[in-house]
Structures are given as C-alpha cells and as structure tokens.
Computed example of a mutant assay.
Amino acid sequence: MSAENTLPDSITELLRSTGAALRVFDMGRRISKLSLDQFRRIEDSQLPYPSPFQHLAWMALLIWNPKRQQENAVWFLRLPLDEQGLVAPAARDDLLKRLLQNVINSQNGQLDEDALKDNPYSFTPDQSRMAAFHALAAREMKAPASPHYERAHAWFNGQLPLDAWQSLAYQGLADVIARLDQDDNERALCQRLADMPAAVLETLCPLLEHTRPSGALQQALHAQLNHALATDNSNRVAALCRALSNMSDESAKQAWVLSVLASVHATQPEVITVIATRCETALMAPEVLSVFLEQLAQGEAGQTGFSRILAELMFMPVHRALILQAFRNPDRSDALSQAIGEMFGQTFDTPPAH
C-alpha cells in the first residue's frame, strides 16, 4: 500500500492519528453537542447536517491531548452544504488536505495551534457565541467556570447592588447561564428578572437560547415577553423570543409564537428573523406557519427580507415541503400571493420543483 493510501481519510482519523481526543459542537442556530458518530457521518456526507444555517454547517471542534488535558485547542469550522444538506465532499477534502499539510510542516507531527490560520473554512464567533461556547465547553470538560463567574453569581443573588451590573464581565454572565442548575442560579435569575436593567436582560437572552429553560424560568421569561409585547420595544421582544426559543414544550412554544405574530412587532425585521431562525420548529405547525407567512409578506424588510428568510427556511426539507403546501392555500392574501410571485419571478400557481 502506498504512503498516500495510508493517510487519514477524514478529520476524525487525522485527529486520532495525532493522539488527540475530540468533542464536537454545532455552532449554527444555537450551540449544542454533536456526537462523534454524528460528526463522522456528517463528515462522510452520509448524514444531512441537522441544523444548517445560511446553507453552511457551523461547528466547533474541541481538541485535547488526554495526557495533558489542560492543553486544548478549538477549531471553528464552517463547511458548505449541498441541496440535500450534506457536506460538500470537495470542501471536506480540501480542508483535510490543508490540515494534513499543517501536520507535515509541524515540528513534532502534531497539529499546531494555528492550524486554521488563513484557512477559508475557519470563522471566529461573535462575542456572545464565543462566551457561551467557552462556558458550555468548560462545563462539558468538568472544568471550573471562568474567574468572572463568582462576581456575576453574587450579583444575581443580590449580594451586589443592582447598579453594579456594569462591572460584570460578559464571560461571567455566560458562565451563570451555562450553570443554571448549579449554585441556585436559576432561582436567582428568576427573581432578578423583574427588576433587571434592560441592557442586562437583552445581553442575557442570546445566552439563554443555548439552554433548555425549566418550567419556572419559562414562566418568568414569558411574563417578561407579555410585558414587552405591550410596549413599542421590538428589540426586547426579539431578545425574549431568543431566550424562550429552545424550550422543549412545542405546543407552548407555538402558543407564544402566535401571540408574537399577532402583535404589532411581528412585521419588524428583528422579530420575524428570530422566529424564522430560532423558533423554526414552531413553524412546523401549519396554523403557525400560515400566520408567519402572512406577516412576513407584510414585513418592514420588504420583498428582500421575505425572499431571504424563506430561502433559509426552505433549505430544510421538512420546512420546504410545508411552505410549498402553504403557498397553495387558496385563502392566502393578495400580499402573500404577490410576494410569492416576486420571489419566484412568476405568477405563483404551482410551485417550481427546484
């Protein structure tokens, strides 16, 4: 067998060949764990990416040496997907070739810290995503929270004055949210919500979208959402939608999504976008999808927003089928019919097959 044939044929095999251990996280719509079996099948284009975002697979690979667990590295990767949601093999092969070259060029046959430097498949998460990832990864690795955790914990528990929030580090907030089931954090958060400064609440909500809120936290957040719906603050409505988006009770999620869609905030770009990208499972209910499409057609983002949001949703096969079915509804409004026609560049009677 030639040397070429013995080279690793996947990222998983490459990491194993260097003695590295691996954990994988989805970094797309929200941060969640992917099993190593899922990752290998995704890598081999055998399994559609479960949560595509912007037609890409967004992943974080947490890599460490089991003999020196304090020495770890994180790769943030984004790979293009085909129409079936499978990783494009050419992109996967190109990435693997670049990584193999990095190992060959390294001094010790290991993956350098800058293995992804100038790599077209790498990305840097924004501040919120990075903080949430570090908080969740530390917990996953059974490592302590950051040094900022203690002060944030004290603030949530009322051991610091309310106006001390400006001295809290973002990473500390992320650590508290990642450990809601520890140190009485969830109870403290629920109690603090009622008098929480707007800036803190709108900072916490994107962190909360990566967690499964308990019943008590859902109730507290839902109360805040109802209050926000009665105001003219669409940014707060959108933020609270994000905070509630990962709840497991789909019927309850559908109910509050409908209440948001029935409000004056529904046509605001920031609100309708959050419902499309974070509450997409609620849109699998035809009655919710119907209202969503009508509001989207009348949205402040206009035809461009309508087309972009639907193109994103229709990349997911189940949503595509449901949307095309909803397009055929003879009771759809003239505004929706016109938006559909403009999106497809034709008068819409029967949706195009592709």
Rank of each mutant, 00 (worst) to 15 (best):
Q110K: 12
K97G: 15
Q70V: 03
L86P: 09
T124D: 06
Y121I: 06
P125D: 08
S128D: 08
R139G: 11
N72D: 13
F133P: 09
S122K: 05
G109R: 08
R98W: 03
N72P: 00
V74L: 11
R98V: 09
R139C: 02
L81S: 09
A131W: 03
F76H: 15
L77A: 02
K67Y: 03
Q69A: 12
A137M: 15
Q69T: 11
A73C: 04
E140M: 07
R78L: 00
L99Q: 08
P66W: 04
Q110C: 02
A131F: 04
L81H: 05
F123N: 10
V87Y: 00
Q107E: 15
E113R: 14
D112M: 06
D126K: 11
N65F: 01
F76Y: 15
R78M: 02
D94K: 02
L77Q: 01
D93A: 10
A138H: 09
E83Y: 01
Y121V: 06
L136C: 04
Q69I: 06
M130R: 11
E113D: 13
A90D: 12
K97T: 15
R139F: 01
F133N: 09
P125R: 07
A73N: 09
P125K: 05
L100Q: 13
A115W: 02
L111F: 02
D118P: 02
H134S: 12
D94T: 06
R129T: 02
S122Q: 13
P89Q: 02
D94E: 14
L116V: 06
P80A: 05
A90I: 04
P80T: 07
D94S: 11
S106N: 09
D118Y: 00
L95C: 10
A88V: 14
L116K: 02
P80K: 01
D126V: 09
L95E: 03
